[in-house]
Design a protein around this nucleic acid. Sequence first.
DNA 1: TTAAAAATGATAGTATTACTTTCTAAATGA
DNA 2: TCATTTAGAAAGTAATACTATCATTTTTAA
Lengths: 224, 224
Amino acid sequence: MAIQLKFSLPEKLYLKDPQTTKYGSKLLGNSVLLIDELGFEGFTFKKLATKIDSTETSIYRYFENKHLLLLYLNCWYWEWLNYLIEVETKNLPSPQVRLERAIHLIVNAHHEFTLTAYVNEVILHKVVVMEGTKSYHIHNIDSENKDGLFLCYKELVERVAAIVELVQPDFEYPRTLSSTLFEMANHQLYFARHLPRLTDLKRKNDLKVELEKMLLVFAEKMLG
Amino acid sequence: MAIQLKFSLPEKLYLKDPQTTKYGSKLLGNSVLLIDELGFEGFTFKKLATKIDSTETSIYRYFENKHLLLLYLNCWYWEWLNYLIEVETKNLPSPQVRLERAIHLIVNAHHEFTLTAYVNEVILHKVVVMEGTKSYHIHNIDSENKDGLFLCYKELVERVAAIVELVQPDFEYPRTLSSTLFEMANHQLYFARHLPRLTDLKRKNDLKVELEKMLLVFAEKMLG
DNA sequence: TTAAAAATGATAGTATTACTTTCTAAATGA
DNA sequence: TCATTTAGAAAGTAATACTATCATTTTTAA
């Protein structure tokens, strides 16, 4: 993919949009690497500043705090996946096939597509699986939600829910099914890697193949 | 319920078991209240010490850090639920009915049972829904897992998985179904309360009733 | 009953975190 | 080229996440 994409993310996420400057993209790219390396709790703006040969002050000009940076990365991921699902399910012959394609992308997109130079999508996906829920399990969730910070996730969930509704208009839980597909994809992968007794995915096999199959079975049974 | 229960939780969770002293039970009970009030990120041992008219030093004699305290509370909840499911599904006529009873308990136990004087189960449940995932999304997950800190959750998931296997021995994902029931119960409730576009549960209705119905439909379709 | 042991409190101290402020220098662009 | 934007440098602060030491109170067991 040669086209470089810029996503429009909620304004209140940042003080200055890191996608608009070279420094900003360095910030984003390295924050993904450092969060992966240290875990979100061990990650600090000080350490990130050192890593990119800069200062805390400069980072604070982009983000109010590390929580909003994490949320920015998640939103970026959600927008990116949303864009891919939109493009890749267009012109497919039936809703069933579109749903199958969407599930394939939820599991595999980060390995098959690279849209940007500065963010490593494979590592970003690791961060989303490992730290993602922390971006929306926060004490001031309601005020952040009011500021529109979770629109990206909502739109992503709604895109897949809309396909679900086409597949089976009588199904009573399209949003729940959609959000559960996204949540399951992350949690079951995390369990397979770290708490294997909580899942039937087997680490020795190709997790992506198994996970995709599992989500397909799951969706089929719910709608079939 | 007049019987006071004491749960045996993994030893490495604590330095001194808070269930063994009066001070410890005060610590536990108030930590639930304070985490609910401030959110886990805003919660500190200093603030807890002030709340129970004590000192940081004393709290540190029980727990190495606040993460382990949160995990302790989660384990407590998992053990408590595990115990209830065991007792309450015993002697039921069929696996189907036992699974239905288990789902009912996942959703409602905290409102229907009170086993201890010092922990408010309803608020503990709020904390588990809000902060629970943080207790196992941590950078040193593998070493903590090695220390057996997640046995309670594994046993809980396996208890329900065992029932699933009795209901439908050919079903290929009993553990995944079980862990997904627990995860869904928390996430869908959280979404209904804070990010309603991510779920079909409607806040105006009785969330518990709706959630139980939803999980039943979900399990039925998976196994039916 | 008393002496030992266990549990808690009081005080102090440290490194790190999570910022904020102010002022300067370099790059950019109209 | 002059104004504006952008980044760096340095310093400072309140709070966090602990640790150490010593004194006091409470419990327990001989």
